[in-house]
Design a protein around this nucleic acid. Structure first.
Lengths: 192, 192
DNA sequence: TGTACATCAGTGAACGCGCGTTCACTGATGTAC
DNA sequence: TGTACATCAGTGAACGCGCGTTCACTGATGTAC
């Protein structure tokens, strides 16, 4: 069969989108290419017409996740007053906890990327972007802006990881709520 | 061949120790039982004389990691003045970053346990233990002790995850150093 | 206008491999008589 | 004391399965003449 002009590019993108979601939801190692292609109504043989290898797909999916999230975050930060507080609310929401597939790749993929020896410049890029965005959101009156933004990013990522792995819903909520309230307070605190 | 009285118990423990290290270093899914047994000079067939399944081993290895770490931390907290600052120094040290196999299982295993749907009461136990230990280490004069301890645990875990997945050593160091200094400052701050 | 050929996204069978798990067996030692 | 048997931690071959990857092929369409 012959396909429309950009049909292949569309399929390529569909594979990336689905992979990007599955890698975050199930993990990279636990995501098989066969089930992935099948979910898109394709056969697995066609995969290699689009990507050099699974690692190639991993990199492109991470890139995709990062870019989507960056756009999304820029939107949040572009908002009116208290953009950082809004970002914290979003990041530490029950919705984000419940949707790893659409969420930040740092809590879901970075540990496994490290273990696979597949750490790439992309990870550093996300980290640096987030750090800079947080720094910009902090009031100039806050001392130690660099230190505080690093702690904030660490706490955001750690809180999501922990809240997702806690069995007890009350404990999971506590992690999210405590961290959210405390971080938001830091965005205002000008007394130090 | 006949073995000494507690030979089997010793082998059992050796398997748990090796697995506990490999699960943390390489991930659970990426750790095969065959290579694991081979590394101990055993054949993989014997595995099932010791454990019901791989999941059984995962649970026992996590238990082992948790108990060892708890003992280790109690030691740190039993020290003279500033036990919490000492704990933070240890947790966010270059040594801990470099040795996931001997380190805290939260940054290495909790995300994967969640993805595997294998979250157990043990994870909650570690989290709660750490939270209580941190709370006890905070000065009574600190307001919001519960919130602050939650943020601290989140930041500790997040900082290790991020520092391990950063490619640039300077970025990795910055995450560790900033988070360490900032958290330690909170252990003293009595002015809020 | 009609026929022959080129294109190429996707097909589907096959590859070797390592996985978790099972199981009949080994063989050194302890026990029974 | 010597022989027959029981024990049981560990052996090693085999099981079915899904993995990542390869490759000869299909077949609908566009192009050439």
């Amino acid at each position: 069969m012959r396909y429309s002009e950009d049909h292949k590019a569309q399929t390529h993108q569909r594979i990336i989108n689905e992979a990007s979601a599955r890698f975050r939801r199930d993990g990279i190692g636990a995501t098989g290419l066969q089930p992935l292609m099948k979910a898109l109504g394709l056969t697995h043989g066609g995969f290699y017409a689009h990507f050099k290898s699974k690692d190639d797909l991993v990199e492109k999916s991470l890139r995709q996740a990062v870019d989507t999230l960056a756009t999304h975050c820029d939107g949040l930060f572009g908002q009116a007053d208290e953009p950082l507080a809004g970002f914290i609310d979003h990041y530490l929401s029950a919705a984000h906890r419940a949707s790893p597939a659409q969420g930040c790749p740092l809590p879901t993929m970075s540990a496994e990327l490290g273990q696979r020896g597949q750490a790439s410049a992309i990870t550093d890029e996300v980290i640096n972007n987030r750090l800079r965005a947080i720094e910009k959101g902090l009031p100039d009156t806050q001392a130690q802006i660099s230190e505080l933004s690093t702690v904030m990013l660490s706490a955001l990522v750690g809180a999501i990881v922990l809240s997702r792995s806690a069995l007890d819903p009350a404990l999971s909520d506590r992690i999210l709520d405590d961290t959210r309230e405390w971080l938001k307070q830091q965005t205002k605190d000008q007394s130090r």
